[in-house]
Structures are given as structure tokens and as C-alpha cells.
């Protein structure tokens, strides 16, 4: 099949090469052609497949600091049982769900609002839209550092402004109070994610034909009705993609929380990724860290599967 199609293209070019020699060349080339993919295959094997399998193996072993240069006894599912029995597990799972849902809902709503704004033509729109990409391009550690200063209890600008406006009457410990730490890291993460959502929605909006809106306007639809009856249905697959990618990428977030709270105080802002790091690199329980890491991989794979079905559907449409 592939061979005949390959031949067909050349003969369309009107080049007189006999079929026989072309087949020989193809055979000779196929070895050469594998070279193009070889580095990637080696890479996927060495940096993804082997580590993922190794993570699985580690999660079934009592892998501690001593195991790094020694041995790690097989303990079956004990690591998984242990992490689920830890008091931190319940809170971490609830935090992770709140963090992921809170982040993507607000990122998507604000991102969509900005995309709609920038979909209209007005002076300076291009410059301002470019400036809005900055939060997404900065190293996450930098954004985290900036917010750590803004949220600072005694000298941060957020408390200063809120006190000045008499919205609060005493400085709030945004990052040190167990009730506020998670909200603070969610706010920071929303800020980081808005540009990405904006860009994806904006490119989706540009594919909606203008005539649809003109026809709706003639029928007497107001802007709000147009949004729900034209924009949202037209963007259905884009919305699905944005939400799925949001889920997968938010689950991975690590830097922002590390720099703002380190998962504290007392696990108040701990999510699965920071907890896995703590178990492995602070407690030196690499087996337990691997177990939590594998739970994250499993969740990602489920959403990845849904994502790929959504993109396939969007291609069919």
C-alpha cells in the first residue's frame, strides 16, 4: 500500500524511473529512514518507558535512602496501602480536586472573557494581547516569588490595599493560615494559566464565520443569546480540549506551590505532586513517593484518553 502510493507520486511528477529500481531504492532507504526516528525512539525508551516501569517496580518495594546503593525488599502493595492510610492522603486528595477544579474553572472563564474582548478589533488590541502572554512565559518560580511578596502578611501590598479600603481590619496570613493557603496558591495558578486559555479560545473564535453572527443579529438575537447559541456550540471541541489540557497540566503543577507554601502549613495546600516530592525527597521514602506518582500517572492517563477522543471528534467535525 505504502509502496504503491510512493511510486504514484513520482510518476505523477513525470520522472521516468522504472518501478523495479524504485522499489530497490525504497528498500535501501528504509534502513536509512529508520535513522530519522532512532534518536526519538531511544529517547522515549530511556527517559520515559524505562523510568515509568522503574517507578512501578519501586512502588512495590520498600525503597528508602538505604536502597539507593543497597537492596529494596519486595513488599507488594504495602506502599499503596500505607499512603492511603496516612492522614495526609485524605486532605491531599481534597486539596488536589479543589486546586484543579478551582484553577481551571476560573482560568477558562477569564480566558474566554479576554478572548471575546480581543476578538473585537480596536486600537492597541494586538500590543495588549501580546503583553498578556507574559505571565505564561515567565519561569513559574519567578511568578511564585512575586506572589509570595504580594501575599506577605506584614508587608505585602494585598493586605495594605485591603486594609486601606477597610475590606479587612487585620492583616490576613494569606500563605501561613491553614484556611487561606490553598486559596492563595489557586489564585496564583489561575493568574499563570489565563494567557494559555485566552490564546486557545481566541484562535477558536477566529474560526467562527462572521455571517453566523450577522444572521443572528438580523433575527433579533442579543449578544448574550448569540454567545450561547453560536459561540459556545461552535467552540464545543475547543472547550473540551482546553478543559482536558487544563486538568492534565494543573495536576502536574509543582513549582508554584513549592515556592509559595511548600504544601504547608500542615499540608493545608499539599497536592499530590508536592506530596509525592515530600515523600521521596524529604522523607526519603522513594517507594511511597513512587506510589503517589503512579496514582498521578493513572489519573493523567484517564484524562489523556478523554482528551484524545475529544480531539478526534473535533477532527471529524
Amino acid at each position: 500500500m505504502s509502496l504503491s502510493r510512493y511510486g504514484g507520486v513520482s510518476s505523477m511528477n513525470g520522472v521516468a524511473v522504472s518501478r523495479q529500481s524504485k522499489r530497490q531504492r525504497w528498500k535501501r532507504n528504509s534502513g536509512m529512514r529508520l535513522l530519522f526516528l532512532l534518536p526519538t525512539l531511544i529517547y522515549l525508551l530511556g527517559i520515559f518507558l524505562v523510568p515509568i516501569i522503574y517507578n512501578l517496580v519501586m512502588s512495590f518495594r520498600n525503597y528508602t535512602a538505604a536502597s539507593i546503593n543497597g537492596n529494596a525488599p519486595f513488599i507488594g502493595l504495602q506502599n499503596y496501602i500505607d499512603v492511603f492510610r496516612m492522614p495526609a492522603m485524605g486532605q491531599t486528595l481534597v486539596n488536589t480536586i479543589e486546586f484543579v477544579v478551582g484553577s481551571i474553572v476560573f482560568q477558562a472563564i477569564i480566558g474566554m472573557a479576554l478572548a471575546l474582548l480581543f476578538n473585537r478589533k480596536f486600537p492597541l488590541s494586538q500590543l495588549l494581547r501580546t503583553l498578556l502572554l507574559i505571565p505564561w512565559l515567565l519561569p513559574l518560580i519567578v511568578s511564585g516569588t512575586a506572589f509570595k511578596w504580594i501575599f506577605d502578611q506584614n508587608h505585602g501590598v494585598l493586605n495594605a490595599v485591603l486594609l486601606h479600603l477597610h475590606i479587612i481590619h487585620a492583616p490576613l496570613g494569606w500563605l501561613v493560615s491553614p484556611n487561606l493557603a490553598l486559596i492563595s496558591v489557586i489564585i496564583t495558578n489561575i493568574w499563570v494559566g489565563i494567557p494559555f486559555n485566552m490564546v486557545l479560545f481566541h484562535s477558536g473564535l477566529q474560526n467562527i464565520p462572521e455571517e453566523l453572527y450577522e444572521a443572528a443579529a438580523l433575527d433579533g438575537c442579543n449578544k448574550w443569546q448569540q454567545f450561547w447559541s453560536i459561540t459556545v456550540p461552535s467552540l464545543k471541541s475547543v472547550i473540551a480540549i482546553v478543559l482536558m489540557l487544563g486538568l492534565i497540566y494543573t495536576l502536574k503543577v509543582f513549582d508554584v506551590i513549592m515556592v509559595l507554601t511548600g504544601g504547608g502549613p500542615a499540608n493545608a495546600s499539599q497536592i499530590l505532586s508536592t506530596w509525592s516530592y515530600d515523600l521521596s525527597f524529604q522523607n526519603m521514602q522513594f517507594g511511597q513517593g513512587a506510589a503517589v506518582g503512579n496514582i498521578m500517572i493513572l489519573i493523567s492517563l484517564i484524562f489523556c484518553f478523554i482528551y484524545m477522543r475529544a480531539t478526534r471528534q473535533s477532527e471529524v467535525n
Partner: peptide, 14 residues
């Protein structure tokens, strides 16, 4: 889409 933390855990040992 594989979380970096999961990868880092095994890569550290390997």
C-alpha cells in the same frame, strides 16, 4: 502529559 514529579522520582534513582 506524564507528571514531571513521577518521572523525577525514577530518574533520580536511575
Amino acid at each position: 502529559m506524564i507528571p514531571g514529579v513521577s518521572l523525577a522520582n525514577a530518574l533520580f534513582i536511575l
